[in-house]
């Protein structure tokens, strides 16, 4: 028996907003019957304000899949599309008072359906295989990019976590080693460098001259941050340094990625705080292309 919160059970037993909006302005469909869960989201959107006027879902899946769908529709009603696009799977889970670890993939499905619906409204077609990279898990159709992205966003370090969030590896198991390798690549810098540099770092950071600091920032960007972004087909450029404020610009895939602001804040900043100084703040220059 799963340990579901009261809120999960409430949204399962009394799902809000289920059904289908006729003549919907946006439709997002993810999952499949074969995978064991699927979600179809329909939205009514105000053309002028880009506000989500109504949201309805249809879900095939377990209790937490239905609850996550219901929660997600409640969260996005009344939001404009940019706000809605920023919702993360962690926020859906949080709205429900948390999901069992093995069920995190339900919140990911909610997030993906939302992303798909917004992309649909904006006329972007997501070509699964081409755009999202190499297929890692055949059983559940999970790509390398999805694994990397979720690992970074949710700070996942173990293969088991990846399985909980994406299902990848939960079928025949043939892809488990591949997932391990991807995780190793994502986190390898942290593992190799952090422990060695940890103790003397904060002290040293305070005494850095501006020149030393710039050098250290550049080094961290080069050796720690850039390799991870490159795996997503993205890159990062240092624009300016103003005391502890660091202005950067995201290039390539990252600049269009809906989770880019999240990536910057949580990933780049954490790394720079860790390797350079805990006082660092990262700010994003808008890519003007």
């Amino acid at each position: 028996m799963w340990n579901y919160t009261d809120k999960v059970l409430d949204h399962f037993h009394n799902p809000r907003n289920y059904g289908e909006i006729e003549n919907a302005d946006a439709v997002g469909e993810v999952g499949s019957m074969a995978c064991g869960d699927a979600l179809r989201l329909t939205l009514k959107i105000d053309k002028n304000t880009q506000t989500i006027l109504d949201a309805k879902f249809q879900t095939f899946g377990c209790g937490s899949a239905i609850a996550s769908s219901s929660a997600m529709t409640e969260m996005i009603k009344g939001m404009n599309l940019d706000e809605a696009n920023k919702i993360t799977n962690a926020e859906i889970s949080k709205f429900l008072g948390g999901l069992p670890p093995e069920k995190m993939h339900c919140s990911v499905m909610g997030k993906e359906a939302l992303e798909a619906a917004i992309a649909n409204y904006r006329g972007i077609t997501i070509e699964k295989d081409e755009e999202e990279g190499r297929l890692v898990c055949r059983c559940f159709g999970v790509t390398e990019d999805k694994i990397q992205k979720l690992a970074l966003e949710n700070n996942l370090h173990n293969v088991e976590d990846i399985t909980n969030y994406t299902k990848a590896g939960g079928g025949c198991g043939a892809c488990l080693q591949d997932i391990q390798d991807i995780l190793d690549a994502v986190w390898h810098n942290k593992k190799e460098k952090a422990p060695a540099a940890e103790a003397p770092k904060p002290e040293a950071a305070k005494k850095l001259t501006m020149v030393q600091k710039v050098k250290l920032i550049e080094e961290t960007l080069e050796k720690v941050i850039r390799p991870s972004l490159n795996q997503d087909g993205g890159d990062i450029e240092l624009i300016d340094i103003d005391k502890n404020k660091i202005y950067v610009k995201l290039l390539g895939m990252c600049s269009h990625c809906p989770s880019s602001s999240f990536t910057i804040k949580s990933f780049v900043e954490t790394k720079l705080k860790e390797f350079v100084s805990p006082d660092i703040e990262v700010l994003e220059e808008q890519a003007n292309d």
């Binding site: 799902p15 289920y18 699927a38 979600l39 239905i66």
Partner: peptide, 9 residues
């Protein structure tokens, strides 16, 4: 019926 009303299939 309740669950089928929610299902997309």
């Amino acid at each position: 019926s309740k669950l089928r009303a929610i299902s997309p299939y």
